[in-house]
Design a binder for these strands. Structure first.
Length: 569
RNA sequence: CGGGGCGUAGCGCAGCCUGGUAGCGCACCGCAAUGGGGUUGCGGUGGUCGGAGGUUCAAAUCCUCUCGCCCCGACCA
């Protein structure tokens, strides 16, 4: 490709509303342009990357024996009503009507459609197991799309669905998909971790997420320093406290704490130890009740764990100040376990506290020296908090450390959730009808592009891993317009590279070298060949890698071979 | 959905408070010089000032409505 024939839409300045690195760089490099909130055009440069990611995924899925098919983006409401998700999915489902007022949605995922296909087409156990996938555009009407392509409403996803007669067969395919995802991310050249995950509203039992590690990641993931254990912080179980609850040494004391609304206020103004304070969070419970959740002052409530409690309404919603006042008689900031009139759960770490501080359920007052059983009955003890750096690993080996990750893949064992609702059955060896078990396996194709940039960039721009670079090599001629013999030599080399199958971008604009270098670096081409008259005289061409650690003269005659060697490394 | 902010040329912004012929930088086009890290000079192209309504002799500017986009908020007890 030559720049004269290519839309090189680079920008010096990024639009002011682009917040994260990948969004800024994708705009500046001319990969994408926004059309509406969470909806983007892919310009030629961006599409080249997207297609390369897609190709690697497709190759690995095919290699794993999955079959590609393509399902519609627009789906009839009937199937969603049949699975029960037309009501359950909520406002993220973009619902539309056709001219006959029939209801449809723009598919956010395709369990219903694939299950419908399979129940029509698969009759016999002899056709199983089967694994179908597609690479297709999804639409999820996110509350707040953000970060460019990272959390867009319309995005490209590879989704796969497998069908089985037995749990063993499902486990086998699940394990195979786990290995396939690892291969895909290895081939993409990304640093990642697979972690245990929550199954969320898709449902099912076992589940793993694949995270590309990056500071800007929206998810926190916890690793053991001494085993393979890795889990999303949403899921990671906090350890049982190592100590028993100590006997009371202080009397219960009601203290005036005017204006104290937060744990920080309390600790700073009354010289307390934060580990001996308790905060009380109030959420909506079932049947219009309120439920109080108690965690230590220095800990964070884990929303996923809280939402799993039997009395808590799903999705989790925090009570308003007015609701709290009405139920408790005091506002947020003055709540605690003593004389608390609503149902209550305590975190394990709270249950072992003694002589601790919490709100008095009277505005502007706190109790100091609270002790369980003496001052308040100890409520049900559950795991409510996020794990923190240094917690013992749940598998008993080592300590946890927390890192940020971008979720690019998620695999689930769904079991019979959809096949049962939609009556997807087939005959087994004995001729009796059996409900199929399902697995599903997703990869965010467009999100991988953004994640790759988050992980691989510097001040000058993107640094693509070779396998997904829009071009492998940039060819930068210096002052080509002034020298006919340089022009001829450059064109000859360009043709040779193309014939050799190298993905090369020749910058044939009449620009100064600085401009061409800056653009090549911004768009992240991993290898660069610079060619000027001086080099031509010496019979050399200059090579530089984007990561900057290699720079050398290469004899012109060996340039093609040299590049091929770089690309195969 | 709540809170905040912003819509003026492709991008980044000024002008608005205090109404009076719409500006700057980058990009783009032309000419010239320059020629190995975003060069310089000169000359140009490009704008229904998000939209509608109102006030006024006169509206980017004031008022009302509306649309769009962005940020923060689901850890606050």
């Amino acid at each position: 490709m030559k720049t004269s024939q290519f839309l090189l839409a680079t920008l010096r300045e990024a639009p002011a509303d682009a917040e994260i690195v990948s969004h800024r760089l994708m705009l500046r490099a001319g990969m994408i342009r926004q059309l509406a909130a969470g909806i983007y055009n892919w310009l030629p440069l961006g599409l080249r990357v997207l297609r390369k990611v897609e190709t690697i995924i497709r190759e690995e899925m095919d290699r794993a024996g999955a079959q590609e098919l393509l399902m519609p983006a627009v789906q009839p409401a009937e199937l969603w009503q049949e699975s029960g998700r037309w009501e359950m999915y909520g406002p993220e489902l973009l619902r539309i009507r056709d001219r006959h007022e029939r209801e449809f949605c723009f598919g956010p995922t395709h369990e219903e459609i694939i299950t419908d296909i399979v129940r029509r087409e698969i009759r016999s156990y002899k056709q199983l197991p089967a694994n179908f996938y597609q690479i297709q555009t999804k639409f999820r009407d996110e509350i707040r799309p953000r970060f460019g392509i990272m959390r867009a409403r319309e995005f490209l996803m590879k989704d796969a669905y497998s069908f089985h007669l037995t749990e063993e067969s499902l486990q086998e395919t699940y394990d195979q998909m786990y290995a396939t995802y690892a291969r895909i991310l290895d081939r993409l050249g990304l640093t990642y971790r697979a972690v245990l995950a929550d199954t969320g509203n898709i449902g099912g039992s076992a589940s793993h997420e694949f995270h590309v590690l990056a500071e800007s990641g929206e998810d926190a993931i916890a690793f053991s320093d001494d085993s393979d254990y890795a889990a999303n912080v949403e899921l990671a179980e906090a350890p049982h406290p190592e100590t028993e609850r100590a006997a009371p040494t202080e009397d219960l004391q009601l203290v005036d704490t005017p204006g104290v609304k937060t744990i920080d206020d309390l600790v700073n103004n009354y010289d307390l130890v934060i580990e001996k304070t308790v905060k009380t969070l109030v959420v909506h419970g079932t049947n219009n009740s309120l439920v109080a959740l108690l965690v230590r002052g220095d800990h964070e409530l884990n929303i996923v764990k809280a939402a799993k409690l039997p009395d808590v309404q799903v999705p989790l919603q925090f009570a308003s100040e007015a609701e709290i006042k009405k139920a408790v008689g005091a506002g947020p900031g003055s709540l605690g376990p003593v004389n608390l009139p609503i149902r209550c759960y305590v975190d394990r770490a709270v249950a072992v506290l003694s002589d601790f501080t919490a709100g008095a359920n009277i505005d502007g007052k706190h109790y100091f020296g609270i002790n369980w059983e003496r001052d308040a009955k100890l409520p049900v003890i559950v795991d409510l908090r996020n794990v923190v750096d240094g917690d013992a690993s749940p598998d008993g080996k080592g300590k946890l450390s927390i890192q940020r990750g971008i979720e690019v893949g998620h695999i689930f064992q769904l079991g019979t959730k959809y096949s049962e609702a939609m009556k997807a059955t087939c005959l087994d060896e004995s001729g009796s009808s059996r409900t199929l078990s399902m697995g599903c396996y997703g990869i965010g194709v467009s999100r991988i592009v953004a994640a790759a940039i988050e992980q691989n960039h510097d001040d000058s721009g993107i640094i693509w891993p070779d396998p997904i670079a829009p071009f492998q090599v940039s060819l930068v001629p210096i002052n080509m317009h002034k020298s006919q013999r340089l022009r001829e030599a450059v064109m000859k080399l360009y043709d040779e590279l193309v014939v050799a199958g190298v993905d090369v971008l020749l910058d044939d604009r009449r620009e100064r070298p600085g401009v061409m270098f800056a653009d090549a670096e911004l768009i992240g081409i991993p290898h660069r060949l610079t060619f000027g008259e001086k080099g031509l005289d010496a019979g050399n061409i200059e090579y530089k890698s984007r990561s900057g650690d290699r720079e050398q003269e290469v004899p012109l005659g060996e340039a093609v071979g040299f590049i091929q060697k770089q690309l195969s490394e």
